[in-house]
């Protein structure tokens, strides 16, 4: 009996698991709820309306998102007869899980006791994990067996090809500058935040993340007026909620990665010993920085319409991709000159 309890405890306190649960699931849920609320409120302010206000005006409608979450959770999940049932149900679940998986491998502290995995190649692992989830959006579109879903899925596929390389290259430029794939070393090496040393790479990464998470000038796969809800057209209830949440989860994972690479991670704090000083405070700093990034991401909604698919792809390949290459070159130059 004691053995089983030990086993369970060892699973729960296995660092990748608790980081995934604590920061990945709980943290992401709280941050996503806050961000959606912020996005709605900021957009409402620009558009001269009130935004969510019905539930608890004192909290400016913040619990509205919790109410929406509960609604999604208990709505009937309609599975049409014509869909590929297994894939239809699995795709959004897998996509959501995979989109927060990068959090399980990034360090949120420099204290080795709280690293989820050995950190030597953590940058590569995290970037690799960010590229897994989009395929399941295409699967969701394909399994729905609906014309709008399939068009949406194909658009998603186009957009993936455009942003993936840019995102990886611009974030990886930090590795080139520090000559290490170790995220802890990258964070520790930033005496000056990397965003100041290499703003080009940051801008490219910013645009790539906007594309990856259907941020506003690039909200193409779900564009309502052409393809209804894109890959999610046939979804309802919790599965639809998961699909919608997956984009924000992904944005959160990317934001954490960008906060580490470009915004100096847990600086100015120096993690010490013990769970409070060694894990909670630095991880909160990282999450706060990621939240600020996400708030900036959400402002584009009120300013821009959406690009046409070919314009977005053209922009990505002709403008942002050269920018990412330039950023990478700048990083190599900085490494050569020993700036970092």
């Amino acid at each position: 009996m004691a053995g089983i309890i030990d086993l369970i405890l060892s699973i729960i306190f296995y660092p990748p698991i608790y980081q995934l649960v604590l920061v990945g699931l709980t943290g992401a849920l709280v941050v996503v709820i806050f961000i959606i609320w912020f996005e709605r409120k900021a957009t409402a302010r620009v558009q001269r309306r009130l935004g969510p206000y019905h539930i608890s005006p004192r909290l400016a409608g913040l619990p509205q998102l919790v109410a929406d979450l509960i609604r999604y959770a208990f709505q009937e999940v309609i599975i049409p007869k014509t869909v590929d049932k297994e894939l239809f149900v699995l795709a959004p679940i897998v996509a959501t899980v995979l989109s927060i998986l990068p959090i399980a491998v990034v360090p949120l502290t420099s204290n080795p006791a709280y690293w989820p995995i050995p950190m030597d190649y953590s940058m590569l692992v995290a970037l690799a994990l960010t590229t897994v989830s989009p395929i399941f959006l295409i699967v969701a579109g394909w399994a729905s067996n609906n014309k709008f879903s399939i068009i949406g899925g194909v658009r998603e596929a186009f957009v993936i090809t455009a942003y993936e390389l840019i995102a990886i290259m611009s974030i990886l430029s930090a590795s080139a500058a520090v000559l290490s794939f170790n995220l802890v070393e990258i964070v520790e090496a930033q005496r000056v935040w990397y965003i100041l040393l290499n703003p080009i790479a940051f801008l490219a990464a910013f645009l790539a993340v906007l594309m990856a998470t259907s941020g506003f000038p690039f909200e193409i796969p779900e564009s309502e007026n052409e393809v209804v809800a894109g890959p999610f057209t046939e979804y309802s209830g919790l599965l639809y909620g998961l699909n919608m949440g997956a984009a924000y989860m992904k944005r959160f994972a990317f934001s954490i990665l960008m906060a580490l690479v470009f915004l100096g991670g847990w600086s100015p704090y120096t993690p010490g010993e013990g769970i409070l000083s060694g894990y909670l405070i630095p991880s909160l700093i990282v999450v706060a920085k990621a939240t600020v990034l996400m708030m900036i991401f959400s402002l584009t909604r009120s300013i821009y319409g959406r690009f046409r698919l070919d314009q977005a792809l053209e922009g990505a390949w002709r403008l942002v991709f050269p920018m990412a290459v330039l950023g990478f070159g700048l990083a190599l130059l900085e490494a050569y000159l020993g700036v970092m």
């Binding site: 309502e224 319409g305 959406r306």
Partner: peptide, 16 residues
């Protein structure tokens, strides 16, 4: 027109 090309601000402004 605004909401058709995804520009929600134009939609809200002109309706307001």
């Amino acid at each position: 027109f605004g909401v058709f090309i995804g520009h929600s601000t134009m939609y809200m402004w002109s309706f307001a």
